[in-house]
């Protein structure tokens, strides 16, 4: 990914210099190797701070809602999966394509710092990504980890290396590759549970929620100007759980609001400080939508109908719930 980073720096520099773009949205180096933060670069010199590595997971697409309202053009770097969310925002007319210059960047899979911690890595001084491994140099000695073992959850079932939208690409012809898993496997497992077991599973997971709203705020399709939960007149508090019922309902309502629009980008689960597997709720919706209305991947295209905004006479009736044995 270092090669790609070098391409990114030099192309961004050129595009700034020739005036094709006025600003560059990328990732800026931090205190540690694993903590780059999204940032806007306005000068060629500042691009020295531009990084792209296994920890550039934070998706930049959503920032374009505000960024493309400004004067001038912004260059944005999108990983393959980020292009789906960008497309979906285009479909909903939330971003201005004219003001955007997209460079699709190749991706070797993003890594999960929490997984490193779970594997006992702490006191990190520096990290080296090389091929199949990541070497952590720590205060307590060096540790080598297989890249496969520390991939982010969403990357385990990567949608593929194709960019769905771009003006140009920054890719290499020998990217790191890995076997992907069926993204619906765990959903299937949950479907196989009894309602009581499933209820207990979700109550257990959601009991950790602290209502920080990171899942909502990071979500590219949670793009309402004012979220219903932020309305002081709604009678519910966005910032606290009155009881466990409310805590659970927040997530279920959010899942309904993003149904048919969720691009399965994985940001919600990635940002959750309590590691709640929110993607499972969304994937259940995606799985059902696929089953009821035919395969659909939000963000694969900008045009065309989407299942929940179109009506066909053959659409399933609500009674499908009973037919499938639910209650």
């Amino acid at each position: 990914m270092r090669r790609i980073r070098d391409m990114m720096r030099s192309r961004a520099g050129e595009l700034l210099r020739e005036g094709t773009v006025n600003r560059v949205l990328g990732w800026k180096n931090g205190e540690f190797y694993y903590d780059p933060n999204p940032a806007v670069f306005e000068t060629e010199e500042s691009l020295d701070g531009l990084v792209y590595n296994g920890f550039s997971a934070a998706m930049l697409s959503k920032y374009l809602i505000d960024a493309t309202k400004k004067e001038g053009r912004i260059l944005v770097f999108l990983k393959p999966c980020d292009t789906y969310s960008f497309n979906h925002l285009l479909r909903e007319h939330k971003v201005n394509r004219e003001n955007t210059y997209v460079i699709g960047v190749g991706c070797d899979g993003m890594l999960d710092i929490e997984k490193l911690r779970t594997l006992g890595v702490k006191g990190i001084k520096s990290l080296d990504e090389n091929g199949d491994d990541l070497v952590a140099h720590t205060l307590y000695g060096d540790k080598t980890l297989a890249r496969r073992d520390i991939l982010l959850e969403k990357c385990l079932s990567c949608k593929g290396s194709e960019h769905k939208v771009y003006d140009e690409l920054a890719v290499v012809d020998d990217p790191w590759q890995w076997d992907t898993l069926d993204r619906f496997a765990k959903v299937g497992e949950l479907e196989g549970m009894t309602p009581d077991e499933r209820f207990a599973f979700w109550r257990g997971e959601l009991s950790r929620c602290i209502r920080c709203n990171a899942c909502r705020n990071a979500c590219p399709v949670c793009s309402c100007l004012k979220c219903v939960f932020d309305n002081p007149r709604s009678g519910v508090q966005a910032k606290s759980n009155a009881d466990s019922f409310e805590e659970n309902m927040f997530h279920i309502i959010r899942a309904f609001h993003v149904a048919g629009r969720c691009t399965d980008c994985g940001e919600c689960s990635r940002v959750c400080p309590q590691n709640i597997p929110l993607h499972l709720l969304n994937r259940k919706f995606i799985k059902d939508i696929n089953a009821f209305y035919g395969e659909y991947q939000a963000g694969a295209d900008v045009e065309g109908k989407s299942p929940l905004t179109e009506y066909k006479t053959g659409d399933v009736e609500p009674s499908v719930v009973y037919e499938r044995g639910g209650a």
């Binding site: 940032a39 806007v40 934070a58 920080c212 709203n213 990171a214 705020n217 910032k239 400080p273």
Partner: peptide, 9 residues
């Protein structure tokens, strides 16, 4: 602050 998503984390 430009990248802050305004969550409460």
């Amino acid at each position: 602050s430009q990248a802050c998503v305004g969550c409460g984390t």
